[in-house]
Computed example of a mutant assay.
Amino acid sequence: MYSTSAAGVPHVLTPPSSGRADAPLVIAWHLMDAPRTERAFAAALPLEGLDAWKLYPGLPLSGERFPGEDEFMGAMFAEPVLNGHGAINAGALAELPGLLDEVRAEHGIADGPVAVVGGSAGAGIAGGAVVEKLVDARAAVLISPLVQLRPVVDLLARQFGMDYRWTPESEAVADRMDLVWRAHEFGSTPVRCIVGGDDDLDAFLYPSGRLRDMLREQGSRADLRVVNDMGHALAEEPGVEPAPQTAAAREVDALAVEFLAQCLELA
């Protein structure tokens, strides 16, 4: 396992067990909840048994790039869409091409099959990488996924006692990040959504079901798996450092590996 930085992006890279340079590459973005760093996410979701390169990028404003609790929360309370979710999503997508170029060159990774994985905000980035055609993904696994921003902002507003007022600028960000509305842009990429049975229905479970239904209507392969007794997070707090894998994360990992192995023809 390599933990380093390329194109200014901290990341963890795990080589395939076979050592094949032409093994598939899986890119996996972490949550803003626990596990909230690339190192913690690699421990929680190691994609055990999948013979692939596994690249875990750190999100902007997270991990080594976290500006500090006071500065981050102040910016989020001031404007959670433009300063928070929108900025993190757009920043991660913008830095992906440079990250891939440097990592492939440094480690001799062949330009082979790619799949994407993400948790919560990271799932929004994984889906965004597909619809923006930044990668030609053979599969996408979206965990506790942020596939529609508006209900997530509504949830955060209730939790923090905020009265969020949408503006034309933030509405444009929500439209760009609405993967249900943009379902047709997934093309033929198979998608598996994995949601905790104890997660918020309006913000995460129902939107995941709508995305699955929209993808199926256009003839794409899509399913939704619900993990009982799991909330939104995949690790115990604080979720910054690698920690023992929880039972729920182990189940999520197995569901992700099953789907990826089939789609990448590694089964």
Rank of each mutant, 00 (worst) to 15 (best):
P57F: 04
W29K: 10
N83L: 08
M1E: 07
A121I: 15
G128F: 00
A78N: 02
L260W: 06
R225M: 02
D199Y: 00
G112L: 11
I88R: 09
F72K: 03
A203D: 06
S220A: 15
P207T: 12
L260E: 12
V131Q: 07
V131T: 15
G119N: 15
G108P: 07
R150D: 13
G98S: 07
E265H: 02
D70A: 15
P151C: 00
K133T: 15
P244L: 04
I109P: 14
S62M: 12
M32L: 04
L82E: 15
D200A: 12
G231C: 13
V12D: 13
A256H: 11
W53S: 11
E95S: 13
A52R: 05
H85N: 10
L82V: 15
L31G: 13
M214K: 05
G19Q: 09
R165F: 00
G8N: 08
G128Q: 12
A235H: 00
G58T: 15
V226W: 04
G219T: 04
V12Y: 01
R250P: 03
G58P: 07
P35N: 14
G231F: 08
L99T: 14
S188Q: 12
V180L: 03
L47G: 15
Y2H: 12
A222L: 13
N89H: 10
W166I: 13
A105R: 09
E241S: 12
A44M: 09
G63F: 00
G231Q: 07
F41A: 09
R192H: 10
A75K: 11
L201T: 14
E95D: 13
F41D: 06
R250E: 13
S5V: 15
P80G: 04
L224R: 14
E71C: 05
E106P: 02
P15H: 02
D136C: 02
P46G: 13
